[in-house]
Design a protein around this nucleic acid. Sequence first.
DNA 1: CATGAATGAGCATTCATTCAT
DNA 2: AATGAATGAATGCTCATTCAT
Lengths: 175, 175, 175, 175
Amino acid sequence: MTEKQEKILNAALTLFAEEGFKSTSTSKVAKRAEVSEGLIFRHFGNKDGLLEAIIQMGEDQAKLLFADILMETDPKNVLRKFIEIGLNTSKDKEAINFWKLQFKIKWELEIYGEHKIEALEQALIKAFQTLRYLQPEKEANLLLTLMDGIATRMMLQKSFDLEGTIEFLKQKYKL
Amino acid sequence: MTEKQEKILNAALTLFAEEGFKSTSTSKVAKRAEVSEGLIFRHFGNKDGLLEAIIQMGEDQAKLLFADILMETDPKNVLRKFIEIGLNTSKDKEAINFWKLQFKIKWELEIYGEHKIEALEQALIKAFQTLRYLQPEKEANLLLTLMDGIATRMMLQKSFDLEGTIEFLKQKYKL
Amino acid sequence: MTEKQEKILNAALTLFAEEGFKSTSTSKVAKRAEVSEGLIFRHFGNKDGLLEAIIQMGEDQAKLLFADILMETDPKNVLRKFIEIGLNTSKDKEAINFWKLQFKIKWELEIYGEHKIEALEQALIKAFQTLRYLQPEKEANLLLTLMDGIATRMMLQKSFDLEGTIEFLKQKYKL
Amino acid sequence: MTEKQEKILNAALTLFAEEGFKSTSTSKVAKRAEVSEGLIFRHFGNKDGLLEAIIQMGEDQAKLLFADILMETDPKNVLRKFIEIGLNTSKDKEAINFWKLQFKIKWELEIYGEHKIEALEQALIKAFQTLRYLQPEKEANLLLTLMDGIATRMMLQKSFDLEGTIEFLKQKYKL
DNA sequence: CATGAATGAGCATTCATTCAT
DNA sequence: AATGAATGAATGCTCATTCAT
């Protein structure tokens, strides 16, 4: 990965997250990356290729983020760490961009990357099992679904009380 | 509202919901509505005007939908009806399109129409109060947030078990 | 000529003079005339027909204006009145519009209405003859040409000293 | 300046001069320049940018043309050269286009580029002063105004006797 | 690897004009 | 006579992509 390739990816990540994929022209990306437009195509083939590279980059990042949870053995810690993902994200500008892009793409292209969260789902199920919840699969699913809602609010509703919501959640799950 | 105006609105609603606002060209709308492209601009001024008309149309529909909940006096019924919104929507093709569009636009334009759900929030708070929940505002907010998550899954994750999730929710709230 | 026909002609005259023929859309004319766009075509066939009607209207007005000069018998008065046309025009908003339109159209369509000034030319030639100028045709032509220049400046150059120029001209021709 | 850029400028100059700025579509320019339409916008930003480039090109040319007059020291030569500008122009197809465009734009956009002729005006005033004319400013102004008239006729009135008029003028100023 | 000129399809929008009422 | 809905071609401009250097 050359320096210019990275510049392109970073520029594209920011712009796609801010304005959406369709609305961001390759010329805008080139300008922000301070690179000739042709170079984007040399490296990534076409605009979709650029998007894929960014998504891939994101998945790697996500794996790293999730690894911390997956390695946790104490079920309460699993839940706590999962619930706190959003809180940690909200403090890191780059992380926000990454997640924003994930959701924007979900909606723009109507692709829900189920496989990305499979491992996470299993970890949550196991945690709920250990904690003797009656319907651990359903609990896990509901929590995952709720996290989609929290992400939605967190990124779109300016007045959303992220910390309060997370506090309330932890209380509910007795963490 | 002439016949052709309605054809335009319907075509646009479907296409915007399917492909997104930016990705849908006015010419595509015109073709689907079997109408000249110029007519769109005669009636709605510009593409944004068309979108606004659709959103307005949707809001009127939403008000009708919410009115049923707002008039409910029994707190358990308030919660049940609210939770079941998604279920009812999922059976009506037009309603799905409308809600899909709402979410797509949220993400594409990053606008969260908070005022639209204010009345609903108040109704939920009151319901939780009556049911003696300790933190009715937080409960209401969490439920609303969860509904955003359910909507996200319902519309993007093909394998999502909507009915199971709703059943589980009702059980949780003892409805 | 109905009332609405007149409203259309007046609106078109003003707009064509202000913005030019090509740049003025029929819809703008209709709006300013407070008339439906279709009516323009009912009455004048097409946009060119509207222009022709205005030009005709202008020619009638010009004939009236020139008649005063043509009926003059004293050669000095012929010259004076001719030279002072611009001065008189400059005080009448409607007249300015009319002349502006004439020149704009000249340049936009590259039509020089020679026949319109033939009678005037003859009157000037005769005046110069009577005043014993050596080359009355050339004198007449030069004066006519100069008037085109004066009109150009008067209508386009904001700082143009119309009165001074006319005074100077009268002095030159000993009027 | 690439070859295609020049082709665009030349095509645009001709077309704008022949049909006017507003009436000439960028697609027509592209076709005549045998170039893709997009290229016009890549090089000149937008249609106005193209016009500006042409005007700039013309102004450079005009400066060259005027320089010859401005450097002249003999007052009679100043006047003669000035009066003969039109004659020289009339023999150069490209020059005619340039001047035609200047006047068309004057009328289409109602801009009179006063600063362009200031130096020329000063040179004329000085010439008339040296020749002991009583009102050199007024003489200079009148001559400039007359030249606007000559240009108008020369370019719009097919039957205009340019050479005769200039001959007559030279005689009047005893050149 | 990197540039930037060049392309052609597509976009939102405007326009003159027609037609049913 | 008058309206306003409706059309289809054209307009200025943007975009993703290609290619010679």
